[in-house]
C-alpha cells in the first residue's frame, strides 16, 4: 500500500516537473503573470485610489468581491466549528452518540 502511494507520488511529481518545462524562468519580468492586468494595477492604482500599498488597493477595491466572500468563508468556518463541536457540559455522559 505504501509502495503504491510512493509510486503515485513520484509519477505525479514527474508529470508536474515535465509541465514546468514551458513555464517562465524565475524572476522573468516578461512572464505572462506580470504582463497583462498587473501592469495596469501598478500604473493606475495610486492615481485611482490614493493608496500607496498596491496590495491593499487591489485587495480592498479592485478585488472587493473576492475579499468579501473571504470574510464570509472565515465566518462560515467559525459557524461550522461551533455547530459541529459545541456542547453543554451537563450532558457530557450521553454525548457519545
Amino acid at each position: 500500500m505504501k509502495a503504491l502511494a510512493l509510486f503515485t507520488t513520484l509519477v505525479t511529481g514527474a508529470v508536474l516537473l515535465y509541465g514546468t518545462m514551458d513555464f517562465p524562468a524565475f524572476g522573468d519580468p516578461q512572464s505572462p503573470a506580470s504582463t497583462h492586468i498587473s501592469a495596469y494595477f501598478i500604473e493606475e492604482a495610486v492615481h485611482e485610489t490614493h493608496v500607496p500599498n498596491l496590495v491593499t488597493a487591489v485587495l480592498g477595491d479592485y478585488r472587493g468581491y473576492d475579499t468579501m466572500f473571504e470574510t464570509v468563508v472565515i465566518y462560515c468556518a467559525g459557524l461550522a466549528v461551533i455547530s459541529v463541536l459545541r456542547r453543554k457540559k451537563s450532558d457530557k455522559e450521553d454525548s457519545r452518540s
Binding site: 503573470a33 506580470s34 492586468i37 498587473s38 494595477f41 501598478i42 498596491l54 496590495v55 487591489v58 485587495l59 478585488r63 473576492d66 475579499t67 473571504e70 468563508v73 472565515i74 462560515c76 468556518a77
Partner: peptide, 17 residues
C-alpha cells in the same frame, strides 16, 4: 507584481478556515 500576493493572502485565510 502585486496580484499573486493578494490572491495568496486570501488563500492563506481559506487554508486556516
Amino acid at each position: 507584481n502585486p496580484l499573486p500576493h493578494v490572491l495568496m493572502l486570501t488563500a492563506i485565510v481559506v487554508s486556516v478556515s
